[in-house]
Design a binder for these strands. Structure first.
Length: 261
DNA sequence: AACCGACCCAACCGCCACTCT
DNA sequence: GAGAGTGGCGGTTGGGTCGGT
């Protein structure tokens, strides 16, 4: 991981916005030499930047395959779902949104989705989970906020344990986030749709690489294997999208149109 | 036209984990 | 084992833009 540094620590590093010329230099260098030691990149590429700045510029702006422009409703739905489960794990979220950087997701959250999510958490009960508020059964989604003080504080990560009954944080699913515990939990919760979706995912995607911590789930996924969005078949991606829809319903409630906000 | 506040987004900062010497 | 260097991540900031007055 670590590379031998030949960086001149006394070099005065430039800060601020990147010029098109700097972008081109960085892009050319990485295309020709590949990703390696970031501290040597600015020196070899002839840039008066530090390695961190180069890495950030590459991952957030220059990297091939990045989408620019507004987030789609489905992307927002995925972010809301993942945020409910992961909290502010932007880099993990970005793995599930191909073409979106963690910084972009983070910015979008802070500037827009956070408010949308606050609204979602304040809406009257609509979904199955919210119905729980009037009954005594297992899972319910309640805002951790009290009273009317929403706007001055950050939207807290959804207490997923309240939704799922989990006592421990999620470990890994599809690529990284849904844990074996959640697999089992969803099954134990008689969540037929989710179980079906998981089965469908395993059936469709079991030949794909999948990271699973802590051993194999009941189907043939092996520990330590890996799946990434970029490698998934269209069928697999469809199943995953369906799964996000179901997670979204579990967290926010069904029959909810995110575009209505 | 000028001012002001809200918003957006690129980039920086600080911290932590990891690896190497 | 300790210290130093590096990469990665999340929080925060600052400048530009836009809309309202």
């Amino acid at each position: 991981m670590r590379c031998k540094s030949s960086a001149n620590q006394n070099l005065k590093h430039k800060k601020g916005l990147w010029s098109p010329d700097e972008d081109q230099k960085l892009k050319d260098y990485i295309i020709n030499h590949g990703l390696g030691c970031w501290t040597s990149v600015p020196i070899n590429a002839g840039l008066q930047r530090n390695g961190k700045s180069c890495r950030l510029r590459w991952t957030n702006y220059l990297r091939p395959g990045l989408k620019r422009g507004t987030f789609t409703a489905h992307e927002e739905q995925i972010i809301l779902s993942l945020h409910g489960m992961l909290g502010n794990k932007w880099s993990q979220m970005s793995q599930h949104l191909p073409g979106r950087s963690d910084n972009e997701i983070k910015n979008h959250w802070h500037s827009y989705l956070k408010k949308k999510f606050a609204k979602l958490q304040n809406i009257p009960p609509l979904g199955t989970l919210n119905k729980e508020s009037s009954s005594s059964s297992s899972s319910s989604l309640k805002s951790t906020r009290t009273g009317s003080s929403i706007e001055s504080t950050d939207v807290e990560p959804l207490d997923y344990s309240k939704v799922t009954g989990l006592r421990i944080p999620p470990k890994i699913l599809f690529t990284d986030w849904l844990s074996l515990d959640q697999f089992q939990l969803f099954n134990n919760n008689n969540s037929d749709e989710l179980s079906f979706s998981i089965d469908a995912f395993n059936h469709t995607c079991s030949s794909q690489e999948t990271i699973i911590n802590g051993g194999s789930y009941r189907s043939g996924i092996q520990e330590g294997s890996r799946v990434s969005n970029m490698q998934q078949s269209p069928e697999c991606q469809n199943v995953e999208h369906d799964f996000y829809d179901l997670i979204f319903e579990e967290i926010i409630g069904p029959n909810f149109n995110i575009n209505a906000l």
